Amino acid sequence: MNRLARQSLLLAGLLLPVLPLAAQHVDHAGHGASHARDPMAAAIAAPSRTPANVARDKYRHPAETLAFFGVRPDQTVVEYSPSGGWYTEILAPLLSAKGTFYALQPVGRNLDGYKTFLAAKPDVYGKVKLVPFPDQLSLIPAGSVDTLLTFRNIHNMVMNGTEAATFKSFYDLLKPGGILGVVDHRLPEARDSALEKTSGYLKVSTIRRLAQAAGFEYVGSSEINANPKDTADWEKGVWTLPPTLRNGEVDKARYLAIGESDRMTLKFRKPAS
């Protein structure tokens, strides 16, 4: 092998390790561009989200759930009873540029705590429109909302007897053709309905009945948030499981292995006519 050939081989060997680094750089750039093109992915990946909430994505599946409900960054969206702000951490940045986000928080149910949550990050939550419910419901114009979401709240309405009035409010807020998205703990249909008043679980048929009585059309369901490990027969109700873990350290490992509750994900529509 002549001298020129040896130099060429040596130069090629020195360059080889550079190529994966260049490819890696392209991948990172592409990932950032992907988030820029996908506002939902960017909102879910927002650095303002708390790590404890991010850890629950595997149970709550925010990207798939919001996609199922048809949430877009240019919509007017209401979340009923955002409480601790789990979904606010995603919806606020998602809707901040082109949409409107109303947080419809019941009076007396962590309203002050939610105000504190919003005030802690004004750069992220400064555009959130907090509306105490039902006292200031009129702050949201009737018939102006594209999508109304409620996550794990209808069982509370059923337990305190406010379900009919609250569903009517939902109906009035939505535009014709607007979507009501519901996620809640699922009670098997064969169980005693009396459990709906104490366990935190509800039957799918119960929520469908409430929505349809208010005038909504049933669109469909998804198993995005299902958990077949949850038997829904716990002595202390759904709060036995994480994240509440009402039994404390007793059998904690067992409940953590089961994970969060089995949840129904239901979609309803206000008739367009």
Score class of each variant (00 low, 15 high):
Gly200Asp: 00
Lys127Gly: 03
Lys267Phe: 03
Ala63Gly: 10
Leu95Ala: 10
Pro39Cys: 06
Leu14Lys: 08
Asp123Arg: 14
Ile90Tyr: 01
Ile140Asn: 13
Leu245Phe: 06
Ser34Asp: 05
Arg208Pro: 01
Trp86His: 14
Ile90Met: 00
Leu173Asp: 05
Pro141Trp: 08
Leu4Gln: 10
Gly237Val: 06
Leu21Asn: 12
His25Trp: 06
Leu245Ser: 12
Gly70Ile: 02
His28Asp: 13
Phe117Ala: 04
Asp184Cys: 07
Glu196Asp: 03
Val71Lys: 11
Gly215Thr: 02
His35Leu: 15
Leu9Pro: 01
Ala232Asn: 05
Val77Asp: 14
Val158Phe: 10
Val107His: 15
Val107Tyr: 13
Ser169Asn: 14
Thr116Tyr: 09
Gly177Val: 05
Tyr201Lys: 08
Phe68Ser: 08
Asp38His: 11
Ala12Gly: 15
Pro122Cys: 07
Gly215Cys: 06
Met40Gly: 03
Asp184Pro: 06
Phe133Val: 02
Asp192Met: 04
Gly200Arg: 00
Pro271Thr: 10
Ala211Phe: 06
Glu89Val: 03
Leu118Pro: 08
Gly181Phe: 00
Lys98Arg: 12
Gln7Val: 02
Ala45Met: 09
Thr162Ser: 15
Tyr255Lys: 01
Arg3Glu: 07
Trp86Arg: 13
Ala67Asp: 12
Pro188Trp: 06
Pro132Leu: 13
Ser205Asp: 06
Glu249Leu: 00
Arg6Gly: 02
Asp184Trp: 02
Ala253Thr: 14
Leu10Asp: 11
Asp74Pro: 03
Pro134Ser: 01
Ala43Phe: 06
Asp172Thr: 13
Ile44Gln: 08
His155Ala: 09
Pro82Arg: 14
Ala97Phe: 04
Gly85Met: 04
Lys98Asp: 11
Val219Cys: 00
Ala214Arg: 02
Asp172Pro: 03
Gly143His: 04
Ala12Asp: 08
Arg3Ala: 00
Ala43Glu: 03
Asn156Trp: 01
Phe69Asp: 07
Tyr255Met: 05
Lys236Thr: 10
Ala211Asp: 03
Phe151Arg: 08
Pro134Val: 00
Ala211Asn: 04
Tyr171Arg: 08
Asn110Gln: 14
Asp192Asn: 13
His28Val: 09
Thr88Trp: 14
Leu139Tyr: 06
Lys203Ile: 03
Asp146Cys: 07
Val204Tyr: 10
Glu260Phe: 05
Met157Tyr: 13
Arg60Val: 02
Ser96Cys: 01
Glu223Ala: 15
Phe167Cys: 05
Leu137Met: 14
Asn156Arg: 07
Pro93Leu: 00
Val238Glu: 15
Phe170Leu: 00
Asp233Glu: 10
Leu210Cys: 07
Ala213Phe: 05
Pro188Asn: 14
Thr88Glu: 15
Ala5Asn: 12
Val107Glu: 15
Ala190Gly: 00
Pro134Trp: 05
Met40Lys: 05
Pro271Phe: 14
Glu189Val: 02
Ala36Cys: 12
Tyr80His: 09
Asp172Arg: 13
Asp192Cys: 03
Gly161Ala: 05
Val238Phe: 14
Tyr125Arg: 11
Leu15Lys: 10
His185Asp: 09
His155Tyr: 08
Arg263Gln: 12
Ala97Ser: 11
Gly237His: 09
Lys267Tyr: 02
His28Thr: 09
Ser261Met: 04
Asp233His: 08
Pro228Leu: 05
Lys236His: 13
Val182Gln: 10
Ala55Arg: 15
Ala103Gly: 11
Glu79Ser: 02
Val77Lys: 05
Arg60Pro: 01
Met159Phe: 04
Asp262Ala: 09
